[in-house]
């Protein structure tokens, strides 16, 4: 049975993590953070918080295990097909007019979104010209993305989404079925720089004119959202585009974000 953590358990664990790693994980959104820890109790077969603290302190790999859980699996390729269509037909041509551009996907997880982006760029004839930076706080997630191998059940869902995105083609040209897995054409990632970053650290990338940060803010408290927004925004060039998930919005009160709504339906913002 899953352990249900109380406030005192969470305080104890959070303080232990802060002492060890110097980072306050309390800034993740409450239920999500609690659930991640409860899942780890189950993973380690632990029932008492004191034992969990002992596990954290003795296990040199614990932070990676935690980070892998904090970077939530992407659900599918071409999630919200209309957004991807809009990127291809409206955003890419707009950015292309301004010369060289790069795209940043922070907190890449299982890679479905990265492959979706690469396919969309390829179809727009831009894959060779655009640099993509994909970063993650989890080393395991990065290795997973590099393999580009997905359960066939997921691939079927991706196929269906791709048809919703464009009915005149087939996702099948981008993957092969090998031993019950759908193996993506990893040459799609040729211009992708996959980079592990420390939590709370945001590198600066050149020429970033598009940041895709979809369904990431939902896992953060408003405090962490504001901090993250500020960091990401530093890399985004003027007139750059910032896309969030369709149930997320960028609060105009967020510290000096300089972003305004560009396309409301798909929650796409533009930097001034």
């Amino acid at each position: 049975m899953t352990k249900r953590l109380g406030i005192s358990d969470l305080k104890l664990i959070t303080q232990t993590l802060k002492n060890l790693y110097g980072y306050d994980y309390n800034d993740y959104s409450f239920t999500f953070y609690k659930r991640v820890l409860e899942n780890l109790f189950q993973l380690y077969n632990i029932y008492r918080s004191e034992d969990f603290v002992y596990q954290i302190e003795k296990d040199s790999n614990f932070q990676e295990v935690l980070h892998e859980q904090l970077v939530v699996e992407e659900t599918e390729m071409f999630r919200d097909p209309t957004m991807w269509r809009y990127l291809k037909t409206s955003i890419f041509p707009r950015l292309q007019k301004t010369g060289q551009f790069s795209i940043w996907l922070p907190e890449v997880s299982t890679g479905e979104e990265l492959f979706t982006l690469a396919i969309t760029l390829k179809e727009a004839g831009l894959l060779e010209q655009v640099n993509i930076f994909a970063t993650s706080i989890s080393k395991r997630r990065i290795e997973y993305v590099k393999r580009g191998s997905y359960e066939l059940k997921k691939i079927q869902n991706n196929d269906a989404n791709y048809k919703r995105y464009r009915s005149d083609a087939d996702l099948g040209i981008f993957y092969n079925e090998i031993e019950n897995k759908g193996c993506m054409d990893t040459s799609l990632l040729r211009n992708v720089e996959l980079k592990h970053i420390s939590i709370g650290q945001y590198p600066s990338f050149p020429h970033v004119k598009l940041i895709l940060y979809r369904n990431k803010f939902i896992y953060m408290s408003q405090t962490l959202q504001a901090k993250t927004m500020l960091k990401l925004n530093e890399s985004l060039m003027p007139a750059g585009i910032f896309a969030v998930g369709i149930k997320e919005s960028i609060d105009s009160n967020l510290a000096d974000n300089k972003l305004s709504v560009f396309f409301k339906e798909e929650h796409i913002y533009k930097k001034s």
């Binding site: 959104s29 409450f30 239920t31 999500f32 659900t75 999630r79 939902i218 149930k247």
Partner: peptide, 17 residues
């Protein structure tokens, strides 16, 4: 396609777990 959490402090949180 989202989980819906009801959080302490009377707010909604969504998740794609």
């Amino acid at each position: 396609n989202y989980h819906m959490y009801i959080e302490l402090g009377n707010t909604i949180a969504l998740s794609t777990e």
